[in-house]
């Protein structure tokens, strides 16, 4: 049996690119949907707010694995047969990220004092102008550290995309292991690559958070 070699490492490096690509899709898609849900969550219209709460509760209360299975089989039901794995994985992770980002960002939006919302309103700004010119610039400062922190969760959770047939880092490790059966080596290397991606993000998030805390004092 062949042992772990450069060829395998190259395969893992290539798979890591897919992990990054899927993470980017999940972050952008989840960010767009999540922002919309966050806005709905603070809406003054009751049913809109409750719909957003329900969405967040359902997404946060269901395992990502189940979500992915539902997307995978759901797509077939809706009538698409041969959908590329990256689409199914992308949709699943987008929904997952949106549920968590919505809740993180809701908190950030609401942490901008009510008096700021009122002051903007009293200057006759439209709701859109108020959001983009007054609230978001303040909320984004607060939102950056937890958002970067959540990126780590996204990267790690792309490892579950293998269940819809998407070959990313963890799945690539499994494939290699199936052929050479050196699980310890293979998965240690896989873990090391994840670590190399996630640790800088974690550190960055922590540093941003410290800076924010200092500037708030």
């Amino acid at each position: 049996m062949p042992s772990f070699s450069l060829v395998h490492l190259e395969f893992l490096g290539w798979a890591a690119m897919w992990t990054l690509g899927l993470s980017a899709i999940a972050f952008i898609g989840g960010g767009l949907v999540g922002f919309a849900v966050a806005l709905m969550r603070i809406s003054s219209v009751h049913w809109v707010r409750y719909a957003a709460i329900a969405y967040i509760q359902v997404v946060q209360g269901t395992p990502l694995l189940i979500l992915l299975f539902l997307i995978y089989f759901g797509i077939a039901i809706v009538g698409f047969q041969e959908v590329p794995a990256i689409i199914a994985a992308g949709i699943g992770l987008t929904i997952y990220s949106s549920g968590f980002l919505a809740e993180i960002w809701r908190g950030c939006l609401q942490s901008v004092p009510k008096t700021q919302w009122e002051a903007a309103e009293c200057l006759a700004l439209t709701p859109w102008q108020r959001m983009t010119r007054v609230i978001l610039p303040q909320a984004m400062r607060i939102a950056t550290p937890p958002t970067v922190g959540f990126l780590v969760q996204i990267v790690k959770n792309t490892s579950l995309a293998s269940v819809v047939g998407f070959v990313e880092l963890a799945q690539a490790g499994k494939l290699i292991n199936n052929s050479i059966f050196e699980p310890f080596t293979v998965f240690m290397v896989v873990a090391a690559i994840y670590f190399a991606i996630c640790f800088p993000l974690s550190t960055w998030s922590r540093r941003l958070e410290r800076k924010l805390n200092v500037s708030r004092r």
Binding site: A170, F184, F187, Y194, C198
Partner: peptide, 18 residues
């Protein structure tokens, strides 16, 4: 740091197969 920056799935594989 190691645990928080690696996926649970890979941790599970390492424990089980390792």
């Amino acid at each position: 740091e190691v645990i928080r920056n690696t996926p649970l799935l890979v941790q599970v594989f390492i424990v089980y197969f390792g």
